[in-house]
Amino acid sequence: MPLPLLAFLLLALALAQRLVSPEEVARSQVIKRALPAVVRIHGTPLSAGEGDVVGTGFFVSPLRIVTNYHVVQDLTDLTVRLYDGRTFPAERFAVDPGIDLALLTVKGVQAPGVLSFSKAPTSSLPLGMGVVVVGFPYGQGPLASYGILSGIGPLEVPTPDPTIGAEVGEYLFTDAPLTVGNSGSPLLSLQGEVVGVMADVVGGPSGVGGIGVAVPAELALQSVQDLERFGIPQRGWLGASLVSLEELPPVLLRAVGLTTAQGAMVDRVEPGSPAARAGLRGASRDAQGRLLALGDVILAVNGTPVKDKVDVVRRIARYRPGDRVRLTLWREGRRLEVTLTLMARPRR
């Protein structure tokens, strides 16, 4: 082999070894495979005067795209733009506000790429594992960012709309840089599986003092399967509006013998719901809505103490329709236990 050619090959090999570690190779391959499946979502808000909204989604089947519910909640004229610039109309197929998820149907094209959800339990994901996010921050992209799985647990900070995502018991947290427009982006492992759906950034842009928040794949996959089959999610539903004890005047709690602010009061029971069938009692209020007497207070679900109304909803949502759940209640100055059979949340 001529010396100049040999020298060139050795230099190329040296550069490759210096610039491409095994982790960089895996990361690059994940991004390359994800790009055809990730789309930019665009729509016009229903409210006049608001600017157009842009988010991210990704194909999970030839015609279906997963994104966040809050991305498409109040949008019309939905379109999706593929990584190659082509744009196609889309429409909502089904939504799951409880975990902030929506399924879209795309018209006129089949997916140039499809991503698969990880089937691994959320609890098996190791902290510190490398993760990749591919999306459209500020509508630009698709762009990729990289970080680690920073933590798994409940979201403790308040959100703009507490009804969206209220049934997510545990989120995934990441330090991968994210910003506006990344909502609905896939959170990918270095094996190329979707381990989460990005939903929010807490405390500012992730990577700049903020934390990226994702719905775990285990929960998202269950929701997608339910939406495809039934059109609505099939998580457990109690059928009662709740008020956290910490929101109530302490004097009312003491009046019925409660010495704790941990728990949730049943405020209103929906007719025909699991709560109604189990005989749960709601609060008494006057014509102006002022509280006259406490309803049943939920202290524990299947023996596990609850902190507040959000905790109750999240624990109930871990079960499926038909499951039997035992509630520990405080009623008229004494503890008692009631077992109810859960139902699916009715279609609205």
Rank of each mutant, 00 (worst) to 15 (best):
I164L: 07
R314K: 15
L172V: 11
R335P: 13
P158S: 07
G289C: 09
A278P: 15
R18M: 07
V251F: 06
T341Y: 01
G210T: 02
R324V: 12
N68F: 12
V157N: 11
T260V: 14
E193I: 00
A255Q: 02
A120H: 11
A7Q: 09
P158I: 03
R285F: 08
V224T: 07
D74N: 12
P89R: 08
Q222F: 04
R18Q: 13
P233Q: 07
A90Q: 05
P45Y: 13
T44M: 09
L104W: 06
G108Q: 01
G263V: 06
G184I: 08
L227G: 05
F59I: 12
P305M: 15
R277Y: 10
A264M: 10
P89W: 04
G165S: 14
V297C: 08
A14V: 09
T67V: 03
A16G: 15
Q225W: 01
L329R: 09
A94H: 02
A26G: 10
S123N: 04
I164M: 04
E246A: 06
G192V: 10
A90D: 11
V195T: 03
P250W: 03
V38T: 03
G192P: 02
S273G: 04
P158C: 05
G209F: 04
A176S: 01
P36Q: 15
E91I: 05
T304Q: 14
V215K: 00
A276M: 02
S284E: 08
Q222D: 04
A293M: 15
P249E: 13
A220F: 00
R235F: 11
S21T: 15
V133L: 15
D311H: 14
F230K: 13
Y138Q: 12
V251C: 03
E337T: 15
V168P: 14
E170A: 09
P249D: 12
L19E: 02
G141A: 01
L253F: 07
L127S: 08
F88T: 10
A264Y: 12
G49C: 11
P233F: 03
V38A: 05
L336C: 03
S124A: 11
F117H: 00
I152A: 08
P121I: 06
G57K: 10
L342H: 02
V310C: 04
I298D: 09
D311R: 03
L75V: 01
L242V: 10
P177C: 01
G43Y: 03
I152H: 09
G231A: 03
P305A: 13
E167F: 00
P89G: 01
L63I: 07
S273M: 04
G57R: 05
T259A: 11
E337A: 00
V80R: 11
D96H: 06
G257F: 06
E246Y: 09
Q191D: 14
L340M: 00
L75T: 01
M343P: 03
R81L: 14
G192H: 05
L10W: 07
A255L: 14
A144E: 10
